[in-house]
Design a protein around this nucleic acid. Structure first.
Lengths: 358, 358
DNA sequence: GCAGGATAGTAGTACGTATAACCTCGGCGA
DNA sequence: TCGCCGAGGTTATACGTACTACTATCCTGC
């Protein structure tokens, strides 16, 4: 079923390329000029080419399996419609979803998305933009891709930042989930359940979002009047590190009855730590996450968490980039989040129950 | 396209396009011809341009922030060095890792990777290759991206299949993890622990890999002589579906003491089902997964699983594609896997941890 | 002093596409 | 009869790069 290649013509190593048909080949076959082919195939022929001929050209293109050479097209138009997405590690479910959203939006606008996975692995970590930026006309970057950010300034490219403070640089658009609202919803939920002693399992990532989470948590608790933040521990975003950090947090005195985690992975580690210490979740300690990864519904108990709109961050990021490329002001987008109540939160152990031990 | 505010932003000089410098701009600045710039920057100048001038050109390029236009370059060279990666859903951690591996390998060979996330979402599901294939010269596709595979035949492009049966089509290269070895290792592990009654929680995906998993499991159990497959249930790759399917499997008579799952997500669901039925993992029932996702170490107990080399599948896929593009025979790559023993497997109840004697 | 080579650089062109500018040819009202 | 118009094309050109000729200059040995 594959295109009838002559068989022997394509096996020269490093030599001849498959020689895809060009618009001129189509023109020859249809007996028209190359310009006509372009007009027809770009749907710009109305009132300039007769319908019969247009159909004939399309037929010829189909027969030859013609696909326009995008490189040539973009060269002519001068529009290198490609966005570079810089994320810390695509191996993470969250950023995979961000990319998915960006890619879908990009497909609708017929532009490409190239990924620059920041150099987590080995290797010489080549200049991120030496190769990629050659065809890129805009960058969407997560603030968590710290290593790559230095090079962004020099690029002189339109920039959209994800998870970054709005308004820092006038020319930089930002896209953020409404993490303040999310934190507030978590706090309200836990306060309504009757919790007073809170712990914070924070991500050991030096990023605005995570700073904001800590700040909003503190503010919300302060505003409640009754609640207080008993302990704060920081952990890398791995289950293993989260577990030991959570153990430290749960050894605080008084022991927090609610552990607010910056992330679902941290929350999973926290549950693990609690169990290891003989505490039940949620009866003895409530745990909350953020993100709503697949993992959140897989662990036992299922995590109460805040669902961040990862896909929407990607699509909104791309939309913001298009907006900037279109000459408009760089805006700041805030996306709504949603509290998902599941099994890892409950009222704190009652006064008549087991008192917190030393 | 909104040009918008009339004289407000006067900082855009001349036309309104960003106007990235071209090699001719560099030439003007350096006082040489465009050809010289190209020679110098492509490192083809030895013995043709004086070292002093070459350095001067490089200096000018640096000062202007010049980046060669890759579109123009590939147009001239006629080499569209771009691979298309077709995966079922990038939102999945596994395929995110596959992409990561492919991207790293691609970067080393200075070629691009474009993702085609098969249309899981809404929308008209446009021709996958209408836009992408324009610049693509090879395709790496997972057999799990079923919807997109139909279009691949017509493309006439070199094709590398992931998770697909080797040798089906002569021109198609394949890359697979050694799933047979993985299944055998799981079986050996469980047989050594003393299990006899096995259950299989299979993925409801009509793909060669998953068929192979079932076949190899059956063969391994048959060869053991003592063990048998008590039940097989199929589930979609979600925790929710896996849970109900696992409940059915655990209600089989006799109840399996070991539940072999096609996937970590399924295994997480199985653990959940067991607990819901009052069974302890691993004391009452052992559960195994495949993949070794982050999730595998997050659930309680941590999953015994087979780690599939996702990144290597990506890089090997790209290597295979390069090989085919280079004119060599389409080969079949088999990548080693590794059994990861964790907490979800133990001797079956009533065996006391003593391996079965004669 | 001059052939001949090494050195240093430039002019010109091709790649495949999109589109502005131009051309041709009937029909038609004056 | 002419001038004009619009439909239905075509010709020519630009996009930015890579590289093949080609020219021009400077040595160097005989």
């Amino acid at each position: 079923m594959s295109r009838g290649n002559g068989g022997a013509d394509a096996d020269l190593p490093g030599g001849r390329r498959p020689a895809r048909p060009t618009s001129r080949d189509v023109a020859d076959r249809a007996g028209v000029s190359q310009a006509t082919v372009s007009l027809v195939l770009r749907d710009r022929w109305h009132g300039r080419v007769s319908p019969a001929r247009a159909e004939y050209v399309r037929e010829a293109a189909r027969a030859l399996g013609y696909r326009p050479n995008l490189a040539a097209r973009t060269l002519r138009l001068g529009q290198r419609r490609t966005a570079l997405l810089v994320v810390p590690a695509l191996t993470t479910e969250f950023f995979a979803r961000v990319h998915s959203g960006a890619a879908r939006m990009a497909a609708e606008h017929d532009i490409g998305v190239v990924l620059y996975p920041s150099p987590g692995g080995v290797g010489p970590a080549p200049d991120p933009f030496a190769s990629a930026s050659a065809t890129v006309d805009g960058v969407i970057a997560s603030s968590m891709a710290a290593e790559a950010l230095a090079g962004l300034r020099d690029g002189g490219l339109p920039l959209v930042m994800l998870d970054s403070e709005p308004g820092l640089a006038p020319a930089v658009a930002t896209v953020n989930p409404d993490i303040s609202d999310g934190m507030r919803q978590i706090c309200s939920h836990l306060l309504e359940l009757g919790h007073r002693d809170f712990g914070h399992l924070a991500a050991a990532v030096d990023t605005w979002t995570f700073h904001a989470r800590a700040r909003v948590l503190a503010e919300a608790l302060a505003r409640s009047g009754s609640a207080r933040l008993v302990t704060t521990e920081r952990a890398a975003l791995t289950v293993r590190d989260a577990t030991s950090a959570a153990e430290r947090a749960l050894r605080a005195n008084p022991r927090p009855t609610a552990l607010v985690c910056d992330d679902d992975v941290l929350a999973a580690g926290a549950c693990k730590a609690a169990r290891r210490m003989g505490l039940r979740v949620p009866q003895d300690v409530s745990v909350t996450g953020i993100d709503d990864l697949v993992l959140a519904a897989a662990v036992e108990p299922e995590l109460t968490t805040v669902r961040l709109p990862a896909e929407e961050m990607g699509s909104a990021g791309l939309a913001a980039l298009l907006s900037v490329l279109g000459g408009r002001e760089a805006g700041n987008t805030l996306l709504p989040v949603e509290l998902v109540r599941r099994g890892s939160t409950a009222p704190p152990p009652g006064n008549g129950g087991v008192p917190p031990g030393p």
